[in-house]
Design a protein around this nucleic acid. Sequence first.
RNA 1: GGGCGUGUAGCACAGCUGGAUAAUGCACCGGCCUCCUAAGCCGGAGAUCGCGGGUUCGAAUCCUGCCGCGCCCGCCA
Length: 584
Amino acid sequence: MQLLKQQILPLVEEAIASLGKTNLPVENMLQPSRELDQGDLTLPCFPFAKVFKMPPAAIADALASAIPEHEALGEVLATNGYLNFRISPQWLASQLLEGAMDTIHEVSKRSVLIEHTSANPNGPFHVGRARNAILGDTLVRLHRLWGHEVTAEYYVDDMGKQVAVLAWALEHLSQTDVESLLHDREASNPTWEGKADHQRVRWYQAAQKLRQDEDEAPAIEKAIGELVHASENGNEDVLQAFEDAYQPVLDGMLETLGRLGIQFDRFTKESRFVTNGDVGDLMDELGALEINGVADNGAQYLDLGARGLKGKTEFFYRRGDGSSLYATRDIAYHRWKWSMSNELINVLGEDHKLQAQQVGLTLEELGQERPEVVFYSFIKLPEGKMSTRQGNVVFMDDLLEEAKAQAAKVVSELRPDYEQETIHQIAEAVGTSAVRFNIINVSPEKGFSFRWEDALSFESGSAPFIMYSHSRACSIHRRVSSLKASDVDNGLSIPDELPPGLVDLLRVLGRHNDCLRKVVHEHRPHLFAEQLLHLANGYNAFYRDCYIIDEGKVNQFFYQVSELARSVLRKGMVGLGITPLETM
RNA sequence: GGGCGUGUAGCACAGCUGGAUAAUGCACCGGCCUCCUAAGCCGGAGAUCGCGGGUUCGAAUCCUGCCGCGCCCGCCA
């Protein structure tokens, strides 16, 4: 808890100096207490044992009696060799109500470019692919909450084989061809009939199937190869045909993301770096590097083994025919990104780890920094891997519909008096928020299993739990606002005795910005999800212990605390992409 | 075969820049609506932290060797 640490660090350092030593790394050792019932900050005294030639417990005792009284300190207790500091709840309350939470953000404003999602525009999002978007968008929101200037960017893969396949299929296959090729597959869900991502992915899948066919394949491969080649040489007609093929698909995908509250500030097309000459210049520069190598057919690569890469060390950036590769364009893209921002963050699936290494090492070779990368593992289904080919995927659109339907069922049971329109609004907010939370709640590097049961859980440990606490605070706000001024006690005095639920809430609030700081710097949004759960939990306990409106009179102190919690909850929810409903 | 990641209660997961009784949710058992929304609150039970060594006053956390799972090792994207 930084709030307390700032106050007492000098006291602790003096106390240690009084035992005869200075220059010990006290600042790092004074840490947030592991066990919250022990206190707020803890100084383990074991490492001091050798220095002072005393048992740790005796050191803790000596330090405890050497710490002077301080307004911020509730109690200082030495137990089992630990020196525990408990914050004064009254002091904490006064600090928080005076706006302590608004003032401790960093002064320097950074401009951060976060690239996420960047999925190939060839079909609808399934839950696995959507993890990228949810993670990325949450990072965008949390950085903004922290005060950074953020650009959210989608890198559009508008050239290369995947789009070529789609464009070829749309040009050469009729609807009848497609459906007969896919006769053994599940039909597409009629709900999404008007959505181009669900429609056109059938053409893509049909073409993929044809490419497996021995008789058909050679001619198709030749045609697609020509398209790819033309796109990589910047052929404008071909690029235009590609765009006509993928743009409706991309629009459909973005519609899904929009429902989740995910938006982008900029779309940058991959072909841009080919047509403007950046890729060509880049390849010339790479060719002049010391670690450059040339294959028999003229293809070029960098030997990154010389720069510490293990395994396969040759990184090819230029084909034998002189054209560029995906990673080459990615490097050109990164140099362009660096020209605009002082921090780059990419969100990538774990399958891109090697590629990210190659891009990063090459950027360093060119004298540029490497971007920070947040990798995530794939979401599995209980039946196994999520795979479009095998048909065992959960589409985001289907999940969102199901979540909304479940939520609507719960709302109409819980609030029978609500009108249909209200129920739908609440259900949409609850459904989308729950889906986001269920995914962001898990640390990115962990591959987790998607289960409908969890995704549609609206109880403790879910987004609706947080939303519910927030709506309680809103309800109180509305009631107080509607009271006559004479019923509101204007004096703000903090009582000597505070109920436990209130103290817990204050302490959660006191830790809130510590958590946000960590999350923003270490790119670990799941910890912020946990913090909001604690906050909601804390608010519920406070709500239980403290009657804000009692017998028609408002307790001003309680009300101020409730209002602070309401505001922190609301901002935090926005930070996670949870809709802050005022009633539910 | 090599590289990277992961393995924590029946299930799903926090904690992993070493610190005191391993946190949370689901499921399970018991209690709380004449009082600001019970999508809530309180209590209970449930864990050889994958297995074996090592470093340390102290290891879920660091090192090492096994084992399981995932991803990668294309002049694809």
